[in-house]
Amino acid sequence: TEELDSELELPAGWEKIEDPVYGIYYVDHINRKTQYENPVLEAKRKKQLE
């Protein structure tokens, strides 16, 4: 659920942004990119696909 997503600790260099226009998204300051999917959940999903 969304509530559990926010409890996950983000990897180093990541920041969660709550924007009133664009909603919640994540900033990867190391690689200078943004995405809507939580990077922790993304990594778990990719691992399940292997």
Score class of each variant (00 low, 15 high):
49 L>S: 13
30 I>A: 11
9 E>G: 13
14 W>I: 15
36 Y>Q: 10
17 I>F: 07
25 Y>G: 06
4 L>W: 07
25 Y>S: 10
5 D>V: 14
6 S>M: 09
4 L>A: 11
10 L>W: 02
24 I>A: 05
42 E>H: 02
33 K>E: 03
2 E>Q: 10
50 E>C: 15
24 I>H: 01
13 G>K: 05
43 A>W: 08
30 I>E: 11
7 E>V: 14
27 V>F: 07
33 K>G: 04
17 I>L: 12
34 T>W: 08
18 E>S: 05
27 V>G: 05
44 K>S: 11
21 V>L: 14
6 S>F: 07
17 I>D: 01
33 K>N: 09
31 N>Q: 04
11 P>G: 06
45 R>Q: 13
26 Y>H: 04
9 E>I: 06
34 T>A: 04
8 L>E: 08
12 A>R: 14
23 G>M: 00
11 P>D: 04
8 L>H: 10
21 V>W: 07
30 I>M: 06
46 K>H: 15
9 E>W: 03
33 K>L: 13
42 E>Y: 05
14 W>R: 04
39 P>Y: 00
44 K>I: 04
20 P>M: 06
4 L>P: 07
12 A>M: 02
43 A>P: 09
35 Q>G: 03
33 K>S: 08
41 L>M: 14
37 E>D: 10
12 A>Y: 04
34 T>L: 02
24 I>K: 07
42 E>F: 02
37 E>Y: 02
27 V>K: 14
50 E>A: 14
37 E>H: 06
26 Y>Q: 04
50 E>L: 08
34 T>P: 03
24 I>E: 15
5 D>Y: 14
7 E>I: 06
11 P>M: 09
44 K>M: 12
18 E>Y: 04
28 D>G: 00
23 G>I: 01
18 E>D: 10
50 E>I: 06
35 Q>I: 02
16 K>F: 01
3 E>F: 15
32 R>M: 15
24 I>W: 05
43 A>N: 13
28 D>L: 00
44 K>C: 13
31 N>I: 00
14 W>S: 03
7 E>W: 09
7 E>R: 13
8 L>C: 04
36 Y>E: 09
29 H>L: 09
16 K>A: 03
47 K>I: 02
37 E>L: 08
19 D>I: 01
14 W>M: 01
35 Q>K: 03
34 T>M: 07
25 Y>E: 07
41 L>N: 10
29 H>S: 07
9 E>Q: 10
10 L>F: 05
25 Y>R: 09
45 R>G: 11
9 E>F: 03
28 D>V: 00
13 G>C: 05
9 E>L: 08
23 G>N: 00
35 Q>E: 05
36 Y>R: 15
21 V>Y: 09
21 V>I: 13
28 D>A: 00
38 N>L: 06
42 E>S: 08
7 E>K: 15
41 L>P: 10
17 I>R: 13
34 T>Y: 05
5 D>S: 15
47 K>T: 11
15 E>F: 01
45 R>I: 02
17 I>Y: 12
44 K>F: 09
37 E>W: 03
29 H>N: 13
20 P>W: 05
43 A>D: 14
9 E>A: 15
44 K>G: 12
8 L>S: 08
27 V>C: 12
16 K>H: 00
48 Q>M: 14
26 Y>P: 04
21 V>K: 14
2 E>H: 02
34 T>R: 13
35 Q>A: 07
16 K>G: 02
46 K>N: 04
14 W>K: 03
29 H>Y: 05
16 K>Q: 08
33 K>I: 06
41 L>E: 12
38 N>V: 09
42 E>T: 11
36 Y>G: 08
18 E>N: 13
15 E>S: 08
23 G>A: 00
25 Y>M: 13
12 A>W: 11
33 K>M: 07
25 Y>L: 02
21 V>R: 13
14 W>N: 14
46 K>D: 14
41 L>V: 14
23 G>H: 00
24 I>N: 01
10 L>V: 08
2 E>G: 11
18 E>G: 03
22 Y>I: 09
19 D>H: 10
33 K>H: 03
9 E>K: 11
12 A>I: 14
6 S>D: 10
29 H>C: 03
41 L>D: 14
18 E>R: 03
26 Y>C: 01
26 Y>T: 03
8 L>A: 12
9 E>M: 11
15 E>Y: 03
21 V>N: 12
48 Q>W: 07
40 V>I: 08
37 E>R: 04
1 T>V: 11
40 V>L: 13
39 P>T: 01
1 T>K: 03
40 V>S: 13
20 P>E: 04
11 P>N: 01
44 K>A: 11
35 Q>N: 03
16 K>S: 03
4 L>M: 15
41 L>I: 05
6 S>A: 13
2 E>C: 15
35 Q>C: 05
37 E>S: 09
17 I>C: 07
49 L>P: 12
36 Y>N: 09
40 V>D: 08
7 E>P: 08
10 L>I: 10
42 E>C: 06
42 E>G: 10
31 N>R: 08
22 Y>S: 13
48 Q>I: 15
15 E>L: 02
19 D>C: 13
19 D>Q: 01
11 P>K: 10
44 K>N: 10
34 T>H: 04
9 E>R: 09
31 N>S: 10
31 N>C: 10
20 P>A: 04
47 K>E: 07
14 W>Q: 01
44 K>W: 07
16 K>M: 08
22 Y>T: 09
8 L>M: 13
11 P>L: 05
47 K>S: 14
9 E>V: 10
9 E>N: 04
38 N>Y: 05
15 E>R: 04
32 R>G: 13
39 P>I: 00
18 E>K: 06
27 V>P: 04
3 E>Q: 08
8 L>F: 11
22 Y>K: 15
34 T>S: 11
19 D>V: 00
38 N>S: 12
22 Y>A: 12
18 E>M: 07
43 A>V: 10
29 H>W: 03
14 W>Y: 01
45 R>E: 15
32 R>S: 10
11 P>Y: 03
5 D>I: 14
43 A>L: 13
31 N>F: 01
27 V>I: 09
34 T>C: 14
12 A>F: 15
35 Q>F: 01
21 V>Q: 13
15 E>T: 06
29 H>V: 08
16 K>C: 07
16 K>W: 00
32 R>W: 03
46 K>F: 06
49 L>R: 11
10 L>G: 02
39 P>E: 03
35 Q>Y: 10
19 D>E: 01
18 E>C: 10
36 Y>P: 09
4 L>K: 14
25 Y>I: 12
36 Y>L: 12
11 P>I: 04
39 P>M: 01
21 V>C: 13
38 N>I: 02
4 L>N: 05
26 Y>S: 05
6 S>H: 08
27 V>N: 05
44 K>T: 08
1 T>C: 05
4 L>C: 02
27 V>D: 15
40 V>C: 13
39 P>V: 01
5 D>F: 13
5 D>Q: 10
32 R>C: 09
37 E>F: 03
29 H>A: 08
15 E>M: 07
